[in-house]
Amino acid sequence: MSAQKKSVLVLGARSDIARAIAAEFARKGYNIMLAGRDTGWLDRDASDMSLRFQIETTVHKFDALDLDGHEAFFDALPTVPSIVVCAVGLLGDQEADVQDPAAVRRIIDTNFTGPAHALEVAARRLAATEDDTAIVGIGSVAGDRGRAKNYLYGAAKAGFGEYLSGMRQKYVQSRLHVMTVKPGFVATAMTEGMDLPGPLTSTPEKFAKNVVRALDKRRMVYYDLRWRVLMGVITHLPERIFVRTKF
């Protein structure tokens, strides 16, 4: 199994977390396919990774919301990747979004419908290669328990997490491995301007290293220990008590 020839496809590659994960795989010698809506931007990342890691990179236009286009998107890739990472997501603005039907749909579809469908299409192709392959889906701790602050986003991420869990079970006998990643706080463009608690906040680079390491170990879920502990407490609070907290 020569790592050189293998490649990783990253969906939603413009995200800081995605870029860092792609760079981590590139460092290990994988060729990288970057997919997202703004290919002009991704060209810059592609040049950067080829220069730094001396690997091949390609850039592909991908819109998670264009479900009908997903088959054609995968058909057009230069090769079937051995790893597909999906970082597509949209946090939105809870208060404003819930009052706007189009926004509700956009949040649910960007965090759930689109990624779920794209990965379903990917899974069929990866499983068919009869090689060791993997799917990495990025959910969120926000999906562990609905909170006033972001339950629209959280609910969609919860749905995505369950979807991945089902997919993992479906393919457990195959050589396709499905890993769910649940970030807590990662300082990225998405969280820019938010006041994040230092000890619970990671950088995209550190986070990416952990994700790749977890995949190497064939973990089913990558979930930072501190967050698992914190969310463990939060999810076990009786509803009656939870609703009065400020989490």
């Binding site: 800081d16 810059r44 990342d45 040049s47 950067d48 220069l51 730094r52």
Partner: peptide, 9 residues
């Protein structure tokens, strides 16, 4: 520091 891409050589 985040605008740190190498663009060509």
């Amino acid at each position: 520091t985040r605008a740190n891409r190498m663009l060509s050589f």
